[in-house]
Simulated assay, not measured.
Amino acid sequence: MANIKSAKKRILVNRTKAARNKAIKSAVKTSMKKVEAAVANKDKAAAEVALKDAVSTISKATSKGVYHKNNCARKVARLAKAVNSID
């Protein structure tokens, strides 16, 4: 454990931020899984609704600095491509 006051504070702040980032990443993964499940069931209507929610969640994560913008764009593009591949 650190002895310096500022180092102790950094440890506490880093724990808080790590927990926040973990929660946001988990929400993104869950929303992506919902889209992938709808695509697997070939349910275009449900997939489009889930895609809209997933894009929103991913964009919020990017704006909060959890993901890089290119990572966000890649995730959204892959999900959109999967949804558009449904007949």
Score class of each variant (00 low, 15 high):
residue 26 S to Q: 11
residue 50 A to Q: 08
residue 67 Y to W: 05
residue 13 V to N: 00
residue 45 A to N: 15
residue 70 N to G: 03
residue 87 D to Y: 08
residue 52 K to A: 13
residue 40 A to V: 12
residue 28 V to W: 00
residue 1 M to H: 04
residue 33 K to V: 07
residue 47 A to W: 04
residue 17 K to R: 11
residue 66 V to H: 06
residue 70 N to D: 03
residue 53 D to Y: 11
residue 30 T to D: 02
residue 22 K to F: 01
residue 87 D to H: 07
residue 44 K to E: 15
residue 21 N to D: 15
residue 41 N to R: 15
residue 73 A to R: 08
residue 42 K to F: 12
residue 43 D to G: 09
residue 70 N to P: 01
residue 41 N to K: 15
residue 76 V to N: 05
residue 9 K to A: 15
residue 23 A to W: 00
residue 20 R to H: 15
residue 66 V to L: 01
residue 17 K to F: 06
residue 48 E to Q: 13
residue 21 N to K: 04
residue 79 L to M: 08
residue 59 S to A: 10
residue 48 E to M: 12
residue 44 K to R: 14
residue 18 A to E: 07
residue 6 S to I: 05
residue 31 S to A: 13
residue 52 K to W: 00
residue 74 R to N: 13
residue 70 N to H: 01
residue 22 K to R: 12
residue 14 N to I: 04
residue 69 K to N: 10
residue 8 K to I: 00
residue 16 T to P: 00
residue 26 S to I: 01
residue 70 N to I: 08
residue 52 K to R: 12
residue 10 R to C: 05
residue 9 K to M: 09
residue 58 I to Q: 06
residue 64 K to Y: 06
residue 40 A to M: 11
residue 18 A to W: 04
residue 66 V to K: 01
residue 86 I to D: 14
residue 59 S to H: 12
residue 74 R to H: 05
residue 33 K to Q: 09
residue 37 A to S: 11
residue 85 S to Q: 15
residue 7 A to W: 09
residue 7 A to E: 15
residue 57 T to Y: 04
residue 67 Y to I: 04
residue 22 K to H: 02
residue 65 G to E: 07
residue 40 A to E: 12
residue 11 I to R: 11
residue 50 A to N: 10
residue 25 K to M: 03
residue 38 A to T: 05
residue 45 A to P: 05
residue 77 A to F: 03
residue 68 H to Y: 05
residue 78 R to L: 14
